[in-house]
Every structure is written in C-alpha cells, then in structure tokens.
Design a protein around this nucleic acid. Structure first.
Lengths: 188, 188
DNA sequence: ATACACATGAACCGATCGGTAAACGTGAAT
DNA sequence: ATTCACGTTTACCGATCGGTTCATGTGTAT
C-alpha cells in the first residue's frame, strides 16, 4: 500500500469513527466501509488503537488548520479575531455532518487519564488553548492565558450543546457570551 | 427480585457504566460487577438499552437533586446562587471518582438525535437549563433564559475540561467567567 | 409430604469482536 | 517461461457480544 493509500485509509477511517463511535465500529465493518481489507489495514497499524491514534492525529491537524485559517479570513483585528472564533464554530456546527467533537467523544470512550487516546484528546485541547492565548496576547488582554481558558470553556460547552440542542441558538449564545468575557478582559 | 433489589441493580449499573462506558461494558461483566445474574437482569429489563435508560433516569434525578440542594445550602441570595452553581460543580469535579458527565458520555456513544439515549441526554440538559432560568429570573436578570443558556455553556465546557485538564484550574476559570457573564446580565 | 411458583446459575445461541495464517493473484526481474 | 516478492482475499482463531433456554434449587402454601 502506498503512502497516499495509507493517508486515504486514515481519512476514511476518521469519518467512520467520527460518525459511528470507536467501540461501536469493528474492524470488519471498518474494512468494508473503507474498501481496504483487514489484512492490509493490519500491515500498517499494529492494533485498532494505533489506527485510532492516527485518525486523531489527522483530525487534530485538520481542525486546527481549518480554525486558524477561517479566523484569519474572517477578521484582521486581533480583538475581532477572538470573537471570530465563535463565528467559525457556528459554521462548523451548521455543517450537515456535524456530530460534536472527535476528541470529546474519544475522551468519553477512553476515560482513563493515562490512556494514549485520552492523552491525545487532552493534548488537542492544549494546542487550541495556546492558539487562543496567542490571539488574546495580540489583542492586549490583561491576562491572555486567563482569557484563553475562559474562551475554551465556552467553546467546549458550545460543541456539547450544539450536538444536543441544535446549532443555531447555541452558536448565537456562545458568541454573545464570548463578547462579554472578552470585553471584561480587555477594558481596564 | 424485589423493587429495592431492582433499584440497587440500577444504582450499581450506573456506577459500572459511568466508569466503564456503555459499549465497552458487556452484560456478562455487568452481571458479575453487580452480583445480579444475567437472567435476573433480563427479568426486569427487556434489553441492555432499557437498562441504560433506567440508569440515566436515576442519574438525572440524583444529579439535579444534588445540585439544587447544594446551591441552596451554599447561598440564599438569588444572584449569589447563580455563582454558587459553579462552587457546587467544583466540589463535584474534585470528587475522587469524577469522570465527566454521564450524559455527555451517553450522547458521545449514541449520537443519532433520534436515539432514545441521546434524547434522554438532551432532556437532562433541558431540565438543568430550566433550573438555571428559574435562578436567573429570581436574580432579576434582564433576560433570564439568555443568561441561563450562557451559564449552561460554561457548565458543559467546565465538565469537559475538568475531565481532560484537571479539576482545580478549570473550576476557578468557570467561576470567574460566570461572574463576568452574570454581572453583565444583571447590571443595567 | 407434596405441589406449585419463582429465582437462580450455567450452558448455550448465532453474531461479532480484534487479530492472524495461509492460499491465491499479479507484476517485475531474470 | 520461471521465479520471486508482495498485496489481497478468504477463512479462521479464541473470546466476547446481547440475549435465551433449561435444568436445578428453594421457599411457601396446602
């Protein structure tokens, strides 16, 4: 299997796990869904867990790249970019296939703090946090790390509730809550 | 099996599913963990799904009762009670067995919006929302429903991040974010 | 003592779990 | 044309999945 075929497998597995769940999707159905035989899969991944970790690495990269670029495209002013995070999220929530966050779901199924999958989920959130911090610093927040953590709280809550209660109202609420928190953190 | 034995089974199953996951825990291991034979379990619950729904009903009742009583005990002033929600949550996060929210995990494993388990998770959050609304109304918020939704966003985000990044810092951040949002919503 | 109702554990059902072994097909190098 | 290497298919492994059947208690009422 070529490197590009492998990437394609990981990309397809990502979709299958995202919409089907990790425990609920077996390797047989995964092979059928991706069009790659089980033997071929196990040529490149020692275990199911290794494959899951590969899909999470891909997802982390895809999601953060997407978010950064979307925020950059929406606004140029640092302060407005902090708010634009939530406009980007709103777009995501409204996508047809939206089903919460891959990493929240991963940490829900692999709860042990020492499990590699749980660790990777935590790492994804840390990377997002440092992006938020960078934006907050450029926006001259009094305490950029503090503002970033509060915005991350809003983001995770918005994801969970957009999945449970629907995208539109939640996206509006999160945006307004973010505006409140940002204004309290920027004005003296 | 007596009614009290049945309650005991549901209570024990709740703990097992909470710490082990829904798909990951099989009926055999559940029978062993609860000390109730599989045959006896299936006398009272038609399917595994029915048992899960029963545990979620119990959890909903337990959690909301606990939260309401804890908030009532912490503060009497309506406005302070809104903040006290997050003090109560902080206590929960610090409990040894804390592993995120049963309903977030349930909706992560049963993602279809029409699935009974997903529906029940959404309902749990709606019930919490109406409690928040009631508190916000008593605190004379300009828009109680709006404030309640923003606080629920914070609560869900706090649960997710307390599970992923640790209880203490997250609890502090959520409390401060809540204070910000509340003050913006109460003061003219 | 005997009959009945009921709860139990254990064995069992077909299906599927994660993972493997080996047979088979295909293309390139000799 | 023959060999070799490699990827794929297929069948298979023991274990476990959700759920059922049945034989064996065990207690109670007559």
């Amino acid at each position: 299997m070529s490197a590009s075929k492998r990437d394609e497998l990981v990309q397809n597995a990502l979709q299958v796990f995202y919409s089907g769940g990790f425990h609920a999707v077996g390797m047989d159905s995964l092979a059928k869904a991706t069009g790659v035989s089980k033997t071929a899969i196990y040529k490149h991944f020692r275990t199911k867990e290794d494959l899951i970790l590969a899909t999470l690495r891909l997802r982390d990269e895809q999601f953060r790249n997407w978010l950064v670029r979307r925020v950059e495209a929406l606004e140029t002013d640092p302060r407005k970019r902090l708010v634009a995070i939530f406009d980007a999220l709103a777009e995501w929530f409204r996508e047809p296939g939206f089903q919460s966050c891959m990493f929240i779901k991963a940490s829900s199924e692999y709860q042990d703090h020492t499990h590699p999958i749980h660790v990777m989920a935590a790492e994804h959130k840390r990377l997002l946090l440092s992006y938020f911090s960078e934006l907050a610093r450029k926006a001259k927040a009094r305490d950029p790390e503090d503002l970033a953590r509060q915005l991350l709280l809003l983001k995770e809550g918005a994801i969970v509730l957009a999945h449970l209660h629907g995208a539109d109202e939640v996206a509006r609420d999160a945006r307004r809550a973010a505006e409140n928190i940002i204004s309290m953190s920027l004005e003296k």
